[in-house]
């Protein structure tokens, strides 16, 4: 069962990787994209490139698209079909987009499988050490992303960054923090294990996801202000800045009370396990720092004269503190929350 869980993790990462490639394809070859437009403008060039041999497909369920779908962003100039007429660019774009979503859903199912098989193998909830914790957090992020997507399909282009973040976080976790499946140490044998850790996972997942619209807002905002250099060029395809900004706020507004609750539940547990509800353990300190930064974000967002860009930057800083708490604190500092077997 534990071996199955490990194999599913590989499948999960591969599925997210496929989603990432499909999203990137959609990005690069969509008719509204910079590359796509450039390709349409110079059909001669496209006709020359059209003779290149077809590249391998990115996703198995994807119907054959000449040359471009699987070849990634780099070889963009080569075989853009937009002008040469094999398949209309808009259609290719839609296929790539749908393939990306499908890959994300498959990845999420495999991701769930990783957690379930882990839990069965260890005979407990699958968040007993840093490895499982990070796998669970990224799962929450993906589910929250899919829920968002179901409600706001026009945000699909953000999927590239969600998939990218998932691949990076899961890959880093698998490499640095992998731990054998085993039962809980006595310190974790408590009902609060369920409450505290699960709520921390949900809140962290949402807060980590929140950086995607925040960063895209910053990019799109610059794009709308007329900037075209990298990274603002990425802003061409994403939804309007105002919509991204609102999504950022709603994710954070939803996650912040959850985070507060999760930290409070941890404090109640700490009282019965360690004798004090708050002791400035490194993990606690960084949870406090994140809480303060996100409180700052919500205040900045609610204040009319604070620019939305400033608020979004605070959200990005909040993300950095969360990420540091998740990885940095476990790996660099020695504390009561040291459940990572990374050394």
């Amino acid at each position: 069962m534990a071996a199955l869980s490990d194999q599913l993790l590989v499948a999960t990462i591969l599925a997210y990787l496929a989603a990432m490639i499909a999203h990137a394809t959609e990005y690069a070859f969509g008719h509204r994209s910079v590359v796509g437009r450039a390709a349409t403008r110079v059909p001669q060039l496209a006709a020359v490139g059209g003779g290149a041999p077809p590249a391998p497909e990115s996703t198995p369920d994807h119907p054959p698209v000449p040359a471009t779908a699987g070849s990634g962003g780099g070889s963009a100039g080569g075989g853009a079909p937009a002008g040469s007429g094999a398949i209309p660019a808009a259609q290719a774009e839609r296929w790539a987009g749908h393939a990306a979503v499908l890959a994300t859903v498959l990845g999420a199912l495999a991701h769930l499988g990783v957690l379930v098989t882990r839990g069965l193998a260890a005979g407990r909830m699958p968040w007993g050490n840093m490895y499982e914790f990070a796998v669970a957090i990224t799962f929450v992020g993906v589910v929250a992303w899919l829920v968002t997507l179901a409600r706001r399909p026009e945000l699909r282009h953000l999927g590239l960054f969600v998939a990218l973040a998932d691949v990076l976080l899961l890959g880093a976790t698998g490499m640095t923090a992998y731990t054998e499946a085993k039962p809980l140490v006595p310190a974790l044998q408590s009902a609060w294990y369920l409450v505290h850790v699960s709520s921390i996972i949900v809140a962290s997942g949402l807060l980590l996801l929140g950086v995607v619209p925040a960063a895209m807002y910053l990019i799109r905002d610059g794009y709308e202000a007329g900037r075209r250099s990298f990274p603002y060029s990425l802003g061409a395809r994403v939804p309007a800045a105002a919509a991204l900004e609102r999504l950022t706020f709603r994710l954070h507004a939803f996650a912040f009370p959850l985070w507060t609750f999760a930290v409070a539940a941890g404090a109640i547990w700490a009282e019965s396990a360690w004798g004090r509800y708050w002791g400035w353990d490194p993990k606690e300190t960084w949870a406090f720092i994140s809480w303060v930064v996100y409180a700052g974000y919500l205040h900045a967002r609610a204040t009319p004269y604070v620019r939305r860009r400033t608020a979004a930057w605070i959200a990005v800083i909040g993300f950095a503190t969360m990420l540091f708490n998740l990885y940095g604190v476990n790996l660099f500092f020695d504390g009561l929350h040291s459940y990572a077997d990374a050394d």
Binding site: I289, V292, V293, A295, G296, T303, V306, T321
Partner: peptide
């Protein structure tokens, strides 16, 4: 906001 940031 500045004080919150300083606290962090």
């Amino acid at each position: 906001l500045v004080l919150l940031f300083l606290l962090a």
